[in-house]
Nucleic acid binder design. Structure first.
Lengths: 109, 109
DNA sequence: ATAAAACGCAACTTCCTGGTTGCACTTTTC
DNA sequence: GAAAAGTGCAACCAGGAAGTTGCGTTTTAT
């Protein structure tokens, strides 16, 4: 059987999560509450602009969605891409598990 | 309840996976077979050195382990960190799920 | 109607990343 | 023992990422 090469978007997904600030933003938003940029910047030692950039990265990865409400733009968590990541982890884990099984069978012989 | 901020190493784990080349290397190695740098470089359009650098990144993240055997260094998949990633995804998903539950309960009232 | 809040855009800086090349070193192989 | 295979190390380069500052625009509040 062919080894399935992971899609390019899977890598970008991981890359979007590969930053402490973004990870923390996503963790906050995962409680289902919608937050503005100012709200997400409060309590951070970063600039509002920096937070904005990170949010755009998360949005491009599909992990977050934004909509303008009045003068502020609200961001919300979007869980769908998480499944893609799980799918990759599962495929890797399964291959690894299969290898272990074969190894055990071989040793027992 | 406090929102648990993800550890800094979780971010580096994601970062290590946030590259197509590294993702592909890890996918190959996840079949349990040990491979040399030359073996992993074969079939790639990249230099052996580039592959080496990627392998070092994976190794620092703990996703791979290496050992010198004669003149070549063998790399093997290391599944433990995968659980850390799953743990993060689960925590995020659970928070999200809880939020949905509360929302449904509220609407039904 | 003014002031303040919340944001977008753009320029700029700094640092990291992905990648290459060149060379030296150690093991194998013939 | 000489050639070839497999690496490691260091320098170097281009481009992208993270972050800041400055300024203009649109809403909201007083």
């Amino acid at each position: 059987m062919l080894i399935e090469t992971p899609g390019r978007d899977t890598a970008s997904l991981f890359a979007a999560l590969g930053d402490r600030t973004r990870l923390s933003l996503l963790t906050k938003l995962s409680d289902g509450q919608t937050r503005s940029i100012a709200g997400l910047s409060a309590g951070t030692d970063l600039t509002r602009q920096a937070i904005t950039k990170h949010l755009r990265v998360l949005e491009e990865a599909g992990l977050v969605i934004s909509s303008k409400v009045g003068r502020e733009s609200q961001f919300a968590f979007r869980p769908e891409p998480i499944d893609d990541i799980r799918a990759y982890l599962d495929s890797v884990s399964q291959q690894w598990g299969d290898a272990l099984s074969r190894l055990r069978a071989f040793v027992k012989t």
